[in-house]
Write a protein that binds this DNA or RNA. Structure first.
Lengths: 198, 198
DNA sequence: GTCTATATGGAGATAGAC
DNA sequence: GTCTATCTCCATATAGAC
């Protein structure tokens, strides 16, 4: 039996995917072992705190990704470019609607009570970062707050509906509507009739 | 020990609430027994198919409620009145954002694979019913389809965000925005100091 | 219809050899 | 770091008395 030596950074994304597909409770150590090709011994070597620690670190990993690819740009970058970057990042991250938001899924069941803080902060920072970019981009503060909330919640809702209907076109349509609502006047590939940005 | 004789119609809503709060996997028969004050014997008397049957019937119960209070009016009633009724029903049903959508929660984890059809139909009929009412109300078909999708997904997203942030005002704000998007010109309480309910 | 056993499986977790 | 064996507990589900 050829032994493969692993690092935590290699297995964590695999574990994240299991949680994303099954949810926290249905993701058994058996499943996680299969997907990572790791025995329980190795799993507990990396994560002495067991399943709860795995979820904690998965949440932290996701947060780090969003900080780098979404929040930081929105908070400190050029607003228009940062928002354009957000649309790209979101579309890539959620695999154009075929992948669910693990944090949103955790928020909806009993898992929220176990990981309340990271879940809260993930969404709070997203909304505030987008709000900040909108304001710096010239939007009125009150309108910016409402729009930021609408966008984040719209993405989550689109993921729910896309998965429920098993139809990822729901996601791309929703993303397009939200882009328009934010006022996306960047040049893009035209597909069908499109409201001209006046 | 005073025996209380129950009917299925009495216990089903209690079971629904347990599923709503915990999700399918975390809702154990132990919990369900506590909340319904029923032993496993009684539970299996009502639901020989066990937990899966309970979830099936809960889903059917929810669907029936929405058919009566939302879908039917939208499909066959006077459009403006039916849409106004939908806003009321949604606000009441989700307890102004304090209650999660069980069907949406089921859609996000492995539970979807067990109950794919009822989940799919719940959302599909909602979107189509609203679309129908919008068209009969004078909206352009293409716009109506997009708007219907936007509303249903917006409600789901609002529930996710409200629960994640533990802030139900997210839900009321989202509902108000969606009403405006649909073009709610019914007389409504003016923004500002809300008429206190108590 | 209700209850109290009880059966059985799989879950999370640990120990210790290699 | 990896594995296998094992522990304990609680899950779903059943049986049968009342």
């Amino acid at each position: 039996m050829a032994r493969t030596v692993n690092e935590k950074s290699d297995v964590l994304p695999l574990i994240a995917e299991v949680f994303r597909e099954l949810g926290y409770d249905a993701a058994s150590l058996g499943q996680i072992g299969e997907r990572t090709s790791l025995g329980k011994g190795s799993l507990y070597h990396f994560f002495p705190g067991g399943k709860a620690q795995m979820a904690q670190e998965v949440l932290a990993l996701i947060d780090a990704w969003f900080v780098q690819n979404v929040y930081e740009p929105l908070e400190t970058g050029e607003p228009r470019a940062a928002i354009a970057q957000m649309w790209r990042a979101v579309d890539v991250y959620f695999h154009a609607g075929q992948r669910v938001c693990l944090v949103g899924a955790f928020a909806l069941d009993a898992t929220r009570d176990r990981f309340g803080e990271p879940i809260r902060l993930y969404f709070k920072r997203w909304v505030r970062a987008l709000e900040s970019a909108l304001i710096r981009g010239g939007a009125e503060p009150v309108a910016a707050a409402a729009l930021a909330e609408e966008v984040v919640l719209g993405i989550q809702g689109a993921l729910v509906l896309a998965r429920a209907l098993n139809d990822d076109t729901v996601f791309s349509r929703a993303l397009q509507r939200l882009r328009n609502a934010v006022g996306d006047d960047a040049p893009k590939a035209v597909v069908g009739p499109r409201p001209t940005a006046s």
